[in-house]
Amino acid sequence: MALLSVQNLATYFYTRNGVVRAVNGVSYDLEPGETLGIVGESGSGKSVSCYSLLGLIPMPPGKIVSGTAMYNGLDLLKATPKQMRDVRGSKISMIFQDPMTCLNPYLKIGRQVMEPLIEEGVDKKIAYDRALKALDDVGILDPEERMKQYPHEFSGGMRQRVMIAMALVTEPDLLIADEPTTALDVTVQAQILKLIAELKQRKNTAVIFITHDLGVIAGIADNVNVMYAGGIVERGTTREIFKQPAHPYTQALLDSIPSTHAHGERLFNIKGLPPNLTQEITGCPFAPRCKHAVDACYVTETKLANIGEQHHTACFRFAGGEI
């Protein structure tokens, strides 16, 4: 049985400039222990779709207009604040991109790592021991001393480790990581990715990994959702997405990466810009930028179609074997 089942999630923002359809009909299942990569460019809805699950969307202007997200028999989208508090931080944890803005500069590290446990009602002494072990697990040397220090005494990579320790101290079933390594150097990024993979293996935690870096996804994810303009345009195993991409957007994205090209070779360009999400989109949102687009693409409503056991594409021309 799926750990998390998201059906038809839609989150809109009601702004002065109109309604922004940030997430518009996203559905997927996540199995226990699975690592799901969500890729997409800025504004594709990858972060908003995950924030919606944990009630982290500012309302107003945001509003979840439709959908369900079943987790252990509880619909996260309709959970009461009390129910959400029980899930958030203890069953489902989150790591954010910038560890400096997520740690409280006034509180000692130890207190911050213990907080989710104390919130759960764990005894203070036990919480201390578990926090100590969590910091040790993420490779922080001399954790006893480090627990007495403040965030400014830690480097960027170390702070990100603290964030991971905080997220994992309650042994959650699901970890949502939103661009956790984007602000870090490659060498530190490699350390953090390895750490997440190890912890996941040891505790069988499911991970949703949001990133725009396809290289990172290739190394860590089992399955991938490719998002564009608020919807999933392709879903499949990591191998399928990288080896047999079945949506023109995925193909274009892969073709834009410099490291897949010979030195000095021209990079593929996706012409134009992503659509304005305040306007109603008819047909395929990628059609105006797609080199395979035909007249039918502008009028036919897109939906994910099976083209393999786990491989889905929203491109009807791919699904129909036309491309």
Partner: peptide, 23 residues
Amino acid sequence: ALLSAIPVPDPDYKVEQIELDGD
């Protein structure tokens, strides 16, 4: 170490990463 840490967009690409400790 720096070059081995570059994430490669190919799920079949396996390289032994040379890990650097600390910052």
